[in-house]
């Protein structure tokens, strides 16, 4: 039975890793390891002006919570923060943060990797490209490699 609740947020605003880490570990003597994964928007060789993230309100939070609970059952975690942004995001800006906390490093490393693989394939978000030349962008296509990455945890 875990005595903590994951901090899961779907939001338009950017986030600050130091602030989120402080919020997770402050005042706690039982955390020996934190691992942070941040996903950033790239410009794809300066082809993109921005990405626009669409999401399924309600299911996005619910699915991330389901993934978080599965991680908490599989690894002895002491805390977890997952933030996924929505709306228009420019190259160089963060898109997603997975921050795990545990007594020892292996759980934190593995859970962070598991969470990202599952977020990529199960959390209902979709990226639309906005081209630098102003033309109508395409929807990013899901990658086989993401499915196979998620498959290794089964």
């Amino acid at each position: 039975m875990k005595a903590w609740n994951p901090n899961i947020r779907v939001q338009r605003d950017a986030f600050d890793l130091n602030e989120e880490t402080r919020r997770l570990v402050e005042g706690r003597g039982d955390i020996g390891a934190t691992v942070a994964f941040t996903g950033w928007c790239r410009d794809e060789d300066e082809r993109l002006a921005a990405l626009e993230l669409e999401h399924y309100p309600g299911m996005a939070d619910a699915e991330i919570a389901r993934i978080a609970n599965e991680a908490a059952e599989r690894w002895p975690l002491q805390g977890l923060t997952i933030i996924h942004r929505t709306g228009r995001i420019a190259p160089g800006e963060p898109i997603v943060l997975v921050l795990t906390a545990s007594a020892h490093r292996q759980a934190a490393f593995e859970a962070a990797s598991f969470l990202m693989d599952y977020l990529k394939t199960r959390a209902p978000f979709w990226k639309k490209e906005h081209a630098a030349d102003g033309t109508e962008g395409d929807w990013v296509a899901a990658k086989e490699t993401d499915d196979s990455a998620a498959g290794r945890w089964r």
Binding site: G39, L53, H55, Y56, M59, H84, I95, V96, M116, L119, K120, T121, R122, A123, P124, F125, W126, K127, W139, V140, A141, A142
Partner: peptide, 10 residues
């Protein structure tokens, strides 16, 4: 019920 393409979040 919702219908959507494969997800590309993260």
């Amino acid at each position: 019920i919702a219908f959507f393409p494969p997800m590309t979040g993260g």
